[in-house]
Computed example of a mutant assay.
Amino acid sequence: MLKGIYLTLLIGPGVPIPAPQVLVDALSNIQVTNSKDRSGFQISFLTGKNSSIVTTMLPAGFFDPITTRVILIATLNGIPNVIMDGLVTNHQLGPSNEPGKSTLTITGEDLSLAMDIIDMIIPYPAMPEVGIINLILAKYAFLGIVPLVIPPIISLIQSPTETWRTQPKMTDRAYIKQLASKCGYLFFVEAGPFPGQSIAYFGPDVNVPVPQPALTVNMDGATNVESISFSLDGLAKKVRIYTIMDPITKKIPIPIPVPNINLFKPPMGARPTPPSKIEFATDVAQADATEAAQGILGFLLNNSAAVSGSGSLDVLRYQYILRSRMMVGVRGAGITYDGMYFVDSVTHNIKPGEYKQSFTLSRDGVISNTPFVLT
């Protein structure tokens, strides 16, 4: 594709195989988005009315939704990076009057889509969250999904003689996300690190503490981004006041102010953004101590960051494939916004002879609290 950059496309019903040469020659554009919630892809091919893509592969079901699996591997300087492993959700054919200008576009999501197809009602008596999540994810091991489940800090186990948890007619993905939200956790499926393997992560919003090469702007020959900008949201931070009843009489209200601090994400800035809003929680007043503590902890683990950034880069100049859910440094933006950031999402835009990425960053606080960043 480019000097030092190679793209591998595996595709097919059930088990993906190396793409036929006719697909490789017809490849027009690839877009892959990796974010904290879920990932998706879109691939476009140029076809003609006599192309085997239209006359044979399409009617034979080679691109059928749900059954067709797609794996994309970008190899940079000999290091493979699995940027997508997912299932096709739909395809679109756009015929054209010009020869060879018709397009076939396939769109899909990561493998968590397989968990979002069937609504189920399943009881889980006397089981903690960890047991429930592992039991659900075991059904998808045939897809190469490996569970990585972090036990909640506060786990709630109900006595089966009183009540028990039940998956209330919803899909597995929706139910896992519901449990994650109550614990203050995230749930997502990330492709890799090997082709055909994905990691199902259930745990706190923690970025891999391995800094990627710095994004450099306004530094002449060292500049490696095409554009980058930052903003500070003064209304992002808040204090939430939880009111619980005293555990003895259950009649005396006790207010508990909870600051807007994420326990698993350090501010990354020497001057944190002060809270500007105060709100009152109403969902834990009648809950017992364990449920109230779990709700408060969930708020602490899901706070929003006040500082955000976005931009784009050329992978050939950056000499690295920027990955989401990791950390990256910024330099050249000035004393206020230089320093380390969390990478929230990355979009890969790939065309023949071109590989670019757009990204979003976040952190809490301004002015870097680190003396340097990885170059």
Results as ranks from 00 to 15, higher is better:
residue 73 I to P: 07
residue 196 G to Y: 00
residue 174 A to Q: 12
residue 182 K to F: 06
residue 254 I to E: 07
residue 173 R to E: 03
residue 235 L to K: 13
residue 117 I to V: 08
residue 246 D to F: 03
residue 310 S to G: 07
residue 6 Y to S: 04
residue 356 K to D: 08
residue 286 Q to S: 13
residue 90 N to C: 12
residue 295 G to N: 07
residue 353 G to P: 06
residue 50 N to R: 14
residue 292 A to V: 11
residue 165 R to H: 00
residue 23 L to C: 05
residue 290 T to Y: 09
residue 100 G to D: 09
residue 84 M to I: 00
residue 155 S to F: 04
residue 363 R to N: 13
residue 288 D to P: 15
residue 323 R to I: 13
residue 346 V to F: 02
residue 153 I to E: 10
residue 61 G to M: 04
residue 274 P to S: 02
residue 225 V to P: 05
residue 266 P to D: 12
residue 215 L to I: 13
residue 362 S to I: 10
residue 20 P to N: 15
residue 245 M to Q: 14
residue 233 D to L: 14
residue 4 G to P: 01
residue 97 N to H: 08
residue 191 A to M: 10
residue 224 N to I: 15
residue 369 N to H: 06
residue 373 V to I: 14
residue 162 E to R: 15
residue 313 L to P: 08
residue 331 R to P: 08
residue 225 V to G: 10
residue 118 I to D: 06
residue 305 A to M: 13
residue 33 T to E: 13
residue 230 F to K: 04
residue 196 G to K: 00
residue 158 Q to D: 07
residue 326 M to F: 02
residue 336 T to S: 13
residue 246 D to Y: 03
residue 50 N to Q: 12
residue 42 Q to E: 15
residue 207 N to K: 00
residue 324 S to G: 11
residue 17 I to W: 06
residue 32 V to A: 10
residue 102 S to D: 07
residue 191 A to V: 01
residue 135 L to A: 05
residue 148 L to F: 11
residue 88 V to N: 06
residue 135 L to S: 09
residue 343 V to A: 04
residue 47 T to W: 06
residue 277 K to E: 08
residue 17 I to V: 14
residue 87 L to C: 06
residue 50 N to T: 15
residue 238 K to Q: 14
residue 48 G to N: 01
residue 195 P to G: 02
residue 136 I to T: 04
residue 40 G to S: 12
residue 270 A to R: 15
residue 13 P to K: 13
residue 311 G to P: 11
residue 221 G to T: 14
residue 269 G to L: 13
residue 7 L to E: 09
residue 183 C to E: 12
residue 1 M to R: 11
residue 44 S to H: 01
residue 328 V to H: 00
residue 234 G to V: 14
residue 179 L to R: 04
residue 144 G to V: 06
residue 230 F to H: 08
residue 235 L to Q: 11
residue 113 L to D: 00
residue 349 N to Y: 10
residue 16 P to E: 05
residue 146 V to G: 03
residue 302 N to I: 04
residue 23 L to S: 10
residue 209 P to E: 09
residue 180 A to F: 05
residue 3 K to Y: 03
residue 304 S to V: 03
residue 190 E to L: 07
residue 81 N to G: 04
residue 178 Q to G: 10
residue 189 V to N: 02
residue 296 I to P: 11
residue 242 Y to W: 10
residue 99 P to Q: 05
residue 160 P to T: 12
residue 372 F to L: 11
residue 120 M to D: 11
residue 215 L to S: 11
residue 43 I to F: 01
residue 120 M to Y: 14
residue 192 G to A: 05
residue 58 L to R: 01
residue 308 S to W: 05
residue 100 G to H: 08
residue 249 T to V: 14
residue 205 D to H: 08
residue 95 P to I: 12
residue 32 V to H: 11
residue 195 P to C: 07
residue 32 V to I: 15
residue 106 I to P: 06
residue 261 I to V: 11
residue 265 K to L: 15
residue 242 Y to P: 00
residue 145 I to A: 02
residue 27 L to D: 04
residue 225 V to L: 07
residue 169 K to N: 09
residue 203 G to V: 00
residue 135 L to W: 03
residue 194 F to Y: 08
residue 107 T to K: 09
residue 357 Q to Y: 03
residue 249 T to A: 15
residue 150 I to W: 09
residue 358 S to I: 13
residue 206 V to G: 04
residue 280 F to R: 14
residue 300 L to I: 01
residue 248 I to M: 12
residue 302 N to M: 14
residue 4 G to C: 01
residue 112 S to P: 03
residue 373 V to T: 15
residue 186 L to A: 05
residue 87 L to I: 00
residue 248 I to H: 11
residue 103 T to H: 03
residue 23 L to G: 01
